[in-house]
Amino acid sequence: MQNIRVTLVIQNCPVNRFAHNFAQTVKQVSAAALQNCDFVVFPEMNLTGYAPANLSNAVALDSVWINKLNRLAQKHNIAILTGLVEKAAAGKIYATHLVIRPDQPVARYRKIHLSPFEAPYFSCGDDADVFKFKGVYFGIQLCYDAHFPELSTAMALKRADIIFFPHASPRGTPGEKSASWKRHLTARAFDNAVFVAAVNQVGENNAGLDFPGISMMIGPDGFLAGENIAYENKIKTHVLDMSLLEHIRTHKMRYFLPNRRGNLIDE
Rank of each mutant, 00 (worst) to 15 (best):
N12K: 14
T25V: 05
I235V: 10
N192E: 12
T250I: 10
I93Y: 15
V40C: 04
N46S: 14
D210P: 04
P174I: 12
R108Y: 09
D145T: 00
L209I: 10
D129S: 15
P43H: 04
P116D: 13
Q2N: 15
A31N: 11
K158Q: 12
P166T: 01
A23P: 00
A95P: 02
M155V: 07
A32I: 02
T7N: 10
F133Y: 15
V9F: 03
F18T: 05
W181Q: 13
I218E: 02
P258H: 12
D266K: 15
D103Y: 08
F133I: 08
S30H: 09
A193T: 13
G172S: 10
N46K: 00
I10G: 06
N206C: 13
F165S: 02
N16A: 06
I265Q: 15
D103P: 02
V40A: 02
G125I: 11
P102V: 02
D126T: 15
M242V: 04
L55M: 02
P102R: 06
M45C: 08
M1Q: 09
A89T: 13
F22T: 00
F256Q: 15
R110V: 09
R171T: 13
P220N: 06
M1C: 01
N200P: 07
V29G: 01
N200K: 04
G91V: 06
T186Q: 14
I229A: 07
F211R: 11
A207Y: 14
